[in-house]
Simulated assay, not measured.
Amino acid sequence: MGMLFSHDTLPQRVLFGTGKAAEHLGAEVDRFGASRVMVIAGRRDSDTVAGLTARLPVALHYSDIVQHVPIESAEKARAAARENDIDLLVCLGGGSAVGLAKAIALDTALPIIAIPTTYAGSEATNVWGQTEAGRKSTGVDARVLPATVIYDAALSLSLPVGLSVASGLNAMAHCIDSLWGPRADPINAALAGEGIRALADGLPAIVADPEGVHGREQALYGAYLSAVAFASAGSGMHHKICHVLGGTYNMPHAQTHATVLPYVLAFNAPAAPGAESRIAAAFGSSTALEGLNALRKRLDAPRALKDYGFDAADIPEAVSLILPVVPANNPRTVTAENLAALLAAAHRGAPTSAVSVGFPPPES
């Protein structure tokens, strides 16, 4: 029958250029005609923000940013925006800063200019998330899509190599998950394949030369592609797992994604030959899992969930929370038993080589 699919492209302006962030930000603030800007950035970025916004009409600098956007944090930030008559949000940093800006926009419909300094990708999606009573909820809303994204590799030079690796593998997870997400289509697949290639080029370059620009530019480019693909395809099995782990057990976002990814790939790839071959081609490897594992070895990537505070005793509860939200179109049928085995393997950092026929037994 040939190709048959539906694809939505999100309306967003992207400005890319190393050393150009201040120039691009100033032009965008003028374009919006803003007179009372709220700048959202962590305290460690205060000097960077001061330089970028020195000539802008900033009404409020806001730095109370919390991972996974607790509802209390969101409400406090929304109140601050209203009290200061804010007409434009500017966020700089990683996914937590962008997430807080989205939480404000969800309530106020204020436009957002996002300046990412990590590879989280939230800046390119219309997906919001927040945590209440230990449970993370997500949704899709046009109001939270940043109107403009400004990418400047120079702003990521302060991101430590280890966090760069974890954040970049989070972006890789966006690419891979989008190949079997609920709304996966050929356009998403093309973006994801190029995103994998760019990240596989950029991340080793960052490790080899942390002060170099090439690797960081490639990683930002790959992160953008990964997020666009993910926003269109929707959350697949990998993201459903990581959202539960992050929101329920307060685990670090990037490291959790980086750790879980090879296990989900090993689980799904044998049942998704088209996606598997595209991932392998993007890595330039004989199989998708071989390519990912080789990259992870070069990067000294995060290995085990137990290293980030996840307890094996929490696996049954995690399974009960994840299983109902796994998309129905996942390539392989997910059961309580094989999901528990996946989490157990990720918990201890077990090899993924035998996963296609069942996870390795627990270590004796």
Score class of each variant (00 low, 15 high):
residue 6 S to L: 10
residue 7 H to F: 08
residue 9 T to C: 06
residue 11 P to C: 15
residue 16 F to T: 13
residue 18 T to K: 08
residue 27 A to N: 15
residue 27 A to T: 14
residue 34 A to Q: 06
residue 41 A to E: 09
residue 43 R to Q: 11
residue 48 T to R: 06
residue 51 G to W: 02
residue 54 A to Y: 07
residue 55 R to L: 14
residue 57 P to D: 06
residue 58 V to K: 12
residue 60 L to W: 08
residue 61 H to M: 11
residue 61 H to L: 13
residue 67 Q to I: 05
residue 69 V to K: 09
residue 73 S to G: 15
residue 77 A to I: 05
residue 82 R to E: 15
residue 82 R to L: 14
residue 88 L to V: 11
residue 97 A to M: 03
residue 103 A to C: 15
residue 106 L to Q: 15
residue 107 D to A: 15
residue 107 D to K: 11
residue 115 I to S: 00
residue 117 T to F: 00
residue 117 T to M: 00
residue 124 A to C: 14
residue 125 T to I: 07
residue 129 G to T: 04
residue 131 T to C: 14
residue 132 E to W: 02
residue 136 K to C: 10
residue 137 S to C: 01
residue 144 V to C: 05
residue 146 P to T: 07
residue 148 T to G: 08
residue 153 A to I: 06
residue 160 P to F: 06
residue 160 P to I: 10
residue 160 P to M: 11
residue 165 V to F: 02
residue 165 V to H: 00
residue 165 V to G: 01
residue 167 S to A: 07
residue 175 C to I: 01
residue 179 L to Q: 01
residue 183 R to H: 14
residue 185 D to M: 01
residue 185 D to P: 02
residue 186 P to W: 03
residue 194 E to P: 00
residue 194 E to H: 07
residue 197 R to L: 07
residue 199 L to I: 14
residue 205 A to Y: 04
residue 208 A to I: 12
residue 219 A to C: 14
residue 222 G to S: 09
residue 222 G to R: 03
residue 225 L to S: 02
residue 227 A to I: 06
residue 227 A to H: 03
residue 232 S to Q: 11
residue 238 H to A: 08
residue 240 K to N: 02
residue 240 K to R: 11
residue 242 C to N: 09
residue 247 G to A: 00
residue 248 T to D: 09
residue 257 H to T: 01
residue 263 Y to P: 03
residue 263 Y to R: 02
residue 264 V to E: 03
residue 265 L to I: 06
residue 267 F to C: 07
residue 267 F to V: 07
residue 274 G to R: 08
residue 277 S to Q: 15
residue 284 G to I: 05
residue 284 G to V: 11
residue 292 L to W: 05
residue 305 L to Q: 03
residue 305 L to G: 03
residue 306 K to Y: 03
residue 306 K to M: 14
residue 314 D to L: 06
residue 319 V to C: 03
residue 320 S to E: 14
residue 322 I to P: 01
residue 332 R to Q: 03
residue 333 T to F: 02
residue 335 T to P: 08
residue 337 E to M: 06
residue 339 L to G: 01
residue 344 A to Y: 08
residue 353 S to Q: 15
residue 359 F to C: 04
residue 361 P to Y: 04
